[in-house]
């Protein structure tokens, strides 16, 4: 690579990547420094391992890490798994496809907080869902469905909110696959699942990675859904961090914050690598 070409690439990167590095760099620097005892808002500042040592040792810390990873990964996989068949189905227009596509994408334009609030009303003890189940005779009496301990309601809402996002990305990618390629695969006798593994997935791996990663990070750091409809016997990392921050424990909050960043990063790399290894290898 010549010097001139390198300069050209750098010039192209500077408005996007350059801005990110400067802006986020400052913020990350301060968060990391705080987790080691620097930049205290109140009291003395100075290097210390103690916030990390004590922080990681807390039971609630590990619980929050485990729980957030569960929510992040489950939401990402389910959203993408649901989006694929829909994207393929909507690949070519047919009567009614516009309406279907609009219904599916509606969640993008309903605020997360609004969705959580409406969802809560539907599944509440005397909500319409319970009343219907009792009327149908499926439930003997209303059941307590809100804040369920396996976070089913929360993951339902995460998927509902994020699936359209994956759909948006995947639709573009799937539409870019030419019919010739799909036909060729079919002529070679590949079944639907085979076709997905050997043709569709490898050709859309970029969009798949993007959807997985973006949904994973969003769900991992979720706060609003967790505090309204999440299980009351679990805390997400963002919730745990806010809990610390609200009590003025900035250094402890920074430990959780840095953990959250590290998990986002590690999880994203893992998802990117796994999806690439799983599907790029099959190409050709």
């Amino acid at each position: 690579m010549t010097l001139g070409r390198a300069a050209y690439i750098l010039m192209l990167l500077s408005p996007g990547i350059g801005l990110i590095v400067v802006f986020i760099g400052a913020v990350v620097y301060i968060a990391v420094a705080q987790s080691f005892g620097y930049y205290n808002l109140i009291g003395e500042s100075g290097f210390s391992w103690s916030f990390w040592i004590e922080g990681i040792d807390r039971k609630s810390y590990l619980r929050a890490v485990r729980y957030s990873l569960y929510v992040g990964l489950t939401s990402a996989f389910l959203s993408v798994a649901l989006a694929y068949p829909l994207a393929l189905w909507l690949r070519k227009p047919f009567p009614g496809s516009m309406t279907i596509s609009a219904i599916l994408k509606a969640p993008l334009l309903v605020h997360g907080i609004v969705a959580a609030f409406l969802f809560l009303n539907v599944i509440s003890y005397h909500g319409i869902l319970n009343q219907m189940m009792v009327w149908l005779g499926i439930f003997d009496e209303p059941r307590r469905l809100q804040n369920d301990e396996h976070a089913i309601g929360l993951i339902f809402l995460q998927v509902w909110k994020n699936m359209p996002f994956a759909l948006l990305l995947l639709t573009g990618a799937v539409q870019a696959i030419s019919d010739d390629v799909l036909n060729a695969a079919q002529d070679l006798g590949a079944g639907a699942w085979q076709r997905f593994l050997t043709v569709i997935a490898p050709l859309t791996v970029s969009a798949m990675q993007a959807s997985l990663i973006i949904i994973f990070i969003g769900a991992l750091a979720d706060f609003t859904f967790q505090t309204t409809i999440g299980p009351t016997n679990e805390r997400s990392l963002a919730q745990y961090m806010t809990f610390m921050k609200d009590r003025g424990r900035w250094n402890d909050a920074a430990v959780v914050g840095v953990t959250l960043m590290a998990l986002s990063l590690a999880g994203s790399v893992l998802l990117a690598v796994v999806s690439r290894l799983a599907f790029r290898g099959r190409r050709k």
Binding site: M1, L13, I24, I30, A221, A238, M261, S264, L265, S268
Partner: peptide, 28 residues
Amino acid sequence: YDFPGKETVKLIALLPLVVPTFVTAIFF
């Protein structure tokens, strides 16, 4: 373009997502 460090650049591009927005907000 293909250039050395492309994968790194792609990862750097994800940085704003990795930092919790409340942290970003306060220090910004």
